[in-house]
Structure formats: C-alpha cells, structure tokens
Computed example of a mutant assay.
Amino acid sequence: MSGLAHLMWDDGVTAYDFGDGHPMDPVRLDLTRKLVAGLGVDAALKVVAAPPAGEATLRLVHREDYIAAVKAASADPEHADQRYGLGTVDDWAFAGGDTAHAVNFTGGLHHAMPAAASGVCVYNDAALAVARLLELGAERVAYVDTDVHHGDGVEAAFWSDPRVLTISVHEHPRALFPNSGWPQETGAEDAEGTAANLPLPAGTGDAGWLRAFHAVVPELLAGFDPQFLVTQHGTDTHFEDPLAHLAVSLDAQRAVQSACHDLAHTYAGGRWLALGGGGYAVADVVPRSWTHLTAIAAHRPVEPLAAVPEAWRQQVYAATRQQAPYRMTDGRWPVRWQPWEEGYDPADRIDQAIIATRKSVFPLRGLLP
C-alpha cells in the first residue's frame, strides 16, 4: 500500500441532530475538520467520502431484524422499536481506498451491539471495519480502544473469533457506562486470550494512563502479530470531559496516538485505521485531539506548541460562543511516565489494575504476566 493517508469526510456526517444539550453535538466534527484544514494538514491527505454501507456489509456484524428496525425507525422516528434500543434517551431515532493509513474521526461508535443500539451508537462502524477486513481475507486483525468507555460492542462482535484481538483501556466499570470490561473478560472458550480489558481507577492522569497503555498493548500486539491495526481514540479520557472521571491531557492523548502509529508500523506493516469515538468537550478538546491524530496519520505531525489559527478561533466562537484555546497543547508536553519494566508498586491502584489485566490475559497468549 502507498500514497497519501486518507481522511474519510463528507459534510453529511454533521447533518444529524440529537437535540439541544445532547453531548454528541455535530459541531465537534465540523470544528475538527476546519482545524485540520486551518493547520494545512490537508496538503498531506487525500480527503474522500466513504460510500454508505450496504445491507450485506451491515450483516457482517448486525442481525437482519435489527437492520430492519433501524430502517423502520428512520422512516417513522415516532414509532421506533425500543426493544432494539432505538428511540431511547441515548439512541434517538431521526430521519435520516488504497492506502496504508486511514482516519475517520467521525467514526468509532463502539457500543452498538449485533441486535441493539447502545450508548448513542446505532451501527458499530468499528466492528464493521474489522469484519470487512476479515471478509477481504485478513487472518489477524487487532483492535485497540482508548476511549474512556469500554469498547463493549466491538468485543461482543468478536468474542468467539480467534482472528481478532480486542484491547480496551478504559475507566473502571464500577464508575462508568457500560459497566463492563473487567480484566477477567478474555474471550469465549474457543477464543480465550483474544479480549483484553484494562480498567483504570477514576482520577487516573497522564503518567498512569501512558504507563498502563504501554504495560499491556505493545506486548499483546507483538504476540498476536496482526496484519491490520484498527484503533479508537475517544477524547473523553480528558480532564475537561463532562461525562467521565479520568484526568488525561491532550498531550497524553497525542502521545498514545503517536504510539499507535508506531505500533502499526512495527507489527502490522503500517496498515492502520484510526477512528474517533466519544468526546464531549466540543470546542477545547475534540478538534485539537483529532487534528493531532489526523496529522500523525498523514506523517505531518503538528507540534504541540503550535498556535491554532486565529480564523479557527473565530469559527469556534461563532459556532459555540466559547473561547477556543490558543495552542495545540495543554501545556504538559512532553509527558513523562515510568515504563513497566522499571518495576511496579503493589500498593498503587493503577499498578494493581495493570497486574490484574496481565495476569488474566497474558498467560493465555503465551506471555509472562
């Protein structure tokens, strides 16, 4: 594979409306796209619109009766079938290439199940991407989810499939939706060790988050030897996010994005699909984080100390009446953290979480905990 990294974008992705005050505000996508353009990252990208997924593709993950229910809800939103999770507070009903790297920050809707909508996700584009790679002949696909919420829908889709390794680093399920993603959840009997979950305590900050990621993800990828890497980069781990309780900065998010890029080149021949996900600090956090992600995929990384364009700051104010940040950093770059190899503290809650995950899944992959 060669050529420019692809950015999947169509203005139509901002046409949905969950109503005033809903955290999934499409302005976060529009402002991200404008910041990508404002910083000149477009010059290193091929911007393309993905065609709508057909029913045959949707059936790779979702049940046929659920697809029919979604179509019926689109035609008649007032009579959406709530047995499928449609028309609920979270999931409203409304009418409605050839490259090594691809970015779709409008995607990452990782909660949708085979037969139900969940967590503001109707169809699970992340699971569909993995399923499509398998359909095209891939023998091993790895999925790494760094959203603050457990990537439950993707894990469920491939729970019994040894061809797919799912890794989710998220806030502890006792504290946050969807209340799943425990270390002991490691896959079905015929696919043990192909699901890995690393739940972190509320309040985890940059150093702990990066330590946890690097203590689990690289070794599992090395042992699995994936042909493709799909990653999900929800920004709701950020300390300003209103819906969760981690304390991660934009700078740490950028560090993990860069690490995923490097891991794709190390273990997957550079074949990398990067997705967005959750994130509800729509002016301050989401656009900057996903612009960093897009620029990293384009091999044109934006320096953290770079100033954001003044024209973009004005666009933010016009759209949200919020003051935009002045730079592409939270002022924590470079982020410092202690590698796992340098020892651990058995009394530290983050280290306890890491140990629990390693002990649960590493032996199943033939690795030392």
Rank of each mutant, 00 (worst) to 15 (best):
R174G: 06
D11V: 02
G187S: 11
T204I: 03
R174C: 07
G223K: 14
L58K: 08
V48P: 03
T320Y: 02
H214L: 14
R28D: 05
G223T: 10
Q338L: 00
D241T: 00
R271F: 11
Q257C: 04
V122Q: 00
L31P: 06
A281H: 06
G278F: 01
V47K: 10
D76M: 13
Q184E: 08
V141M: 03
A73E: 05
G107S: 06
G19Q: 08
A297L: 08
P339E: 10
Y317S: 02
H110W: 01
H292C: 11
T231K: 07
T320N: 01
H214E: 15
A259P: 09
L39D: 03
S249E: 09
A195S: 09
L29S: 05
S360W: 00
A175D: 14
Q253S: 15
V256A: 07
R28H: 01
I296H: 05
N179S: 14
A75D: 11
P178H: 13
D345Y: 06
L305F: 12
M113K: 10
G208F: 09
A222Q: 14
G193P: 04
D17L: 00
L368Y: 14
A117T: 00
P114I: 03
E185D: 15
T194M: 11
G87H: 09
V285A: 02
H299G: 07
G107W: 09
R174D: 15
T166L: 01
A212Q: 12
Y317G: 05
A247S: 05
V103S: 10
G278K: 02
V144F: 01
V148D: 00
D161F: 03
R349G: 01
H22Q: 13
D10T: 11
N197G: 07
A131Q: 01
W182V: 06
T357H: 00
A281W: 04
P301D: 07
A95F: 01
A298K: 00
P334K: 06
A73R: 06
L293Y: 09
A255C: 10
A356M: 04
H265V: 06
V282Q: 01
A259R: 09
L198T: 00
L367W: 08
C121P: 05
P226Y: 06
G153L: 04
E139I: 05
A255Q: 10
R313C: 13
V248T: 02
G193Y: 00
L136H: 13
P301Y: 08
E135W: 01
P309A: 08
H172Q: 12
G276C: 14
E55T: 15
A295L: 13
L128E: 03
V282G: 05
A295K: 04
T88Y: 04
P242R: 05
G331R: 12
A112N: 11
H245Y: 14
R358L: 03
W272A: 07
E155T: 03
E185F: 11
G343E: 08
G21V: 09
V216L: 12
G193M: 09
R327W: 13
V141Y: 04
E78K: 13
Q184A: 11
L7M: 11
L128Y: 04
T146K: 04
A202K: 07
G119Y: 02
F228N: 13
L133G: 07
A43L: 00
A324E: 11
Q352Y: 12
D145V: 03
A80R: 07
A191N: 03
D91N: 15
D147K: 09
V47N: 10
A175W: 15
A129L: 07
E155D: 12
A117E: 04
W182K: 12
E171F: 04
G137L: 13
L364W: 06
I67V: 14
V164K: 05
W272F: 08
G153C: 07
